[in-house]
Structure formats: structure tokens, C-alpha cells
């Protein structure tokens, strides 16, 4: 039964691939598209530099992640507070997540990336790398904060009751009982946010940093050919596909553990 369905899957996939490979080149514009998007010569010439530029994407990603984690956790805790004296903090958390989840990322990148250096700050404080990072961190912290909060709220009240009955303070209960469980529970959801973040680093190309998308744009203008964009897409895929598979694996494992 299993073997039969494998054969069917194999045959149908082969047919579809064959159809694409034979039919697409029959399109009238194919020769031109091939020349400007899938040009092997241009690809070979530009790809190494694109990979080099992608190191910037990775660097921006890597220093953004710890900042996002810390800020998101702080916002999530602020929103979760039940102490009436801390209500202003809670209000701030609500406003923050509402605002930064409500504005397109590219708009935040423009506003902060052009706006703040426009204040005439001295070097290095006018760097688009810094303000681009700030824009990404502010936006993603809002999303990740909501993920953390959903994790915190998913921990059953009986865990807090057990901790309280032992005389643990509220902050110790949060730190040792609720958060460790909550954070573990939302790892898969946060993995998906990280994948989205890695892609959105490319948005910084609009405010200056010569990362992979910007570099591809430079080559496009230089060589009058779109192949560098295809190269950039391949580089992104080489990172995001394994990461997506890993996130799926984590989700599947978590589902198994809970059943």
C-alpha cells in the first residue's frame, strides 16, 4: 500500500516537472527571460560577492536576536503584570505591541532609518546599520512579546497555586516555575519568527547597508541583468529551508510529547 502510493507520487511528480521543462521554454519570451534571469555567466561572476554580502545579513540577524529576546520578554512580563500599581507599565506594553505590530516593517525601517540619522548625529551614531537594527528589533520584539505572553498564559494556574502554596514569591514563581515552561513551549513559534526576521533583514537594503539584496541591486544596474536577484533568492533559501524544516520538526516533537 505504502509502496503503491510512493510510485504514484513519483510518477505524478515526474510528469509535472516534464511539463514545466518542456512547456515553459515554448513561451514566446523565454529566450529573453532566460538571458536576463538565468544567465550562468552572470551568476558565476556575481555569486561569490553576493555570499560575501550575505554575511552582513547574518551579522545583523545575530546581534538582533539577543536584543529582541530581552526586550520581548520584558514587554511580555509588563503586559502580564497583575499588580495595580504597575498598571502604567502594562499600558505601555499594550501600546507598544499594538503600535509595532500595526505598522508595516518597511515603514518602521524608513522612519527610524532615515529619521534618526537625520537629527545630525555624529559618526558612528548616524550609521544605517545601527538604526536599521533598531527598527527590526522594535518591530520583532512586539511580535515575540506576544508569543512569550501566549506561552505564559498557557501555563495552568495550578502551577502558580503550587508555587504559591510553598511560599514562593510572585517573582520567583514567574522566574523558576512559569517562564522556563512557557519559553520551552513557544520555541517552535519563535523559530518561525526568526526565519521571518532573517528574510526581513533584506529590508535594510532600502536605507543603506550593502547586504545581499542591495549588492544584487548594484550588480543588476552594473550588468543590466536580473540573475543576481535569483542568486540572492537561492542564498536566502539555503538558510530558510533548513530552518523551516527544523521548526516543523520541533513542532512535531512537541505534539508527540503532549499526546
Amino acid at each position: 500500500m505504502r509502496r503503491r502510493s510512493n510510485i504514484i507520487a513519483g510518477v505524478s511528480t515526474t510528469l509535472v516537472v516534464l511539463a514545466i521543462v518542456t512547456l515553459v521554454p515554448l513561451a514566446p519570451g523565454w529566450a529573453a527571460v532566460k538571458k536576463s534571469f538565468f544567465n550562468a555567466e552572470v551568476f558565476a561572476q556575481t555569486f561569490p560577492r553576493l555570499v560575501q554580502a550575505f554575511l552582513w545579513d547574518i551579522a545583523i540577524f545575530l546581534w538582533s536576536v539577543p536584543l529582541i529576546t530581552v526586550i520581548a520578554l520584558a514587554i511580555a512580563l509588563a503586559r502580564d503584570t497583575k499588580n495595580p500599581a504597575l498598571f502604567p507599565l502594562k499600558l505601555f506594553g499594550i501600546l507598544y505591541t499594538d503600535i509595532f505590530r500595526g505598522i508595516p516593517v518597511i515603514l518602521v525601517v524608513y522612519l527610524i532609518g532615515f529619521g534618526i540619522p537625520g537629527l545630525g548625529l555624529p559618526r558612528p551614531w548616524n550609521s544605517p546599520y545601527i538604526w536599521g537594527t533598531v527598527a527590526l528589533v522594535l518591530t520583532y520584539s512586539a511580535y515575540v512579546a506576544e508569543i512569550f505572553r501566549s506561552g505564559i498564559e498557557s501555563i495552568h494556574d495550578s502551577q502558580r497555586a503550587a508555587a504559591a502554596s510553598l511560599g514562593l514569591s510572585q517573582s520567583d514563581t514567574m522566574r523558576f516555575v512559569v517562564l522556563p515552561q512557557a519559553i520551552r513551549r513557544v520555541v517552535p513559534a519563535n523559530m518561525n519568527m526568526l526565519i521571518a526576521l532573517q528574510k526581513d533583514v533584506a529590508l535594510l537594503s532600502f536605507i543603506g547597508p550593502v547586504e545581499v539584496l542591495r549588492q544584487a541591486g548594484v550588480f543588476k544596474s552594473l550588468l543590466a541583468n536580473f540573475t543576481p536577484y535569483v542568486g540572492a533568492a537561492l542564498i536566502f533559501l539555503s538558510v530558510t529551508i533548513p530552518a523551516t524544516r527544523y521548526a516543523d520538526y520541533l513542532i512535531a516533537r512537541q505534539r508527540r510529547e503532549r499526546s
Binding site: S158, A161, A162, A163, S165, L166, F176, V177, Q181
Partner: peptide, 15 residues
């Protein structure tokens, strides 16, 4: 609460 111990129906151990 430190002077009063409590045990629950569903154990409520920290998993």
C-alpha cells in the same frame, strides 16, 4: 503559606 503545606489532587509538580 510557608507555615502551611498543601498538596493538590493533580499533584502539580513542576514538570
Amino acid at each position: 503559606r510557608r507555615r502551611i503545606g498543601m498538596v493538590f489532587q493533580s499533584y502539580n509538580l513542576f514538570p
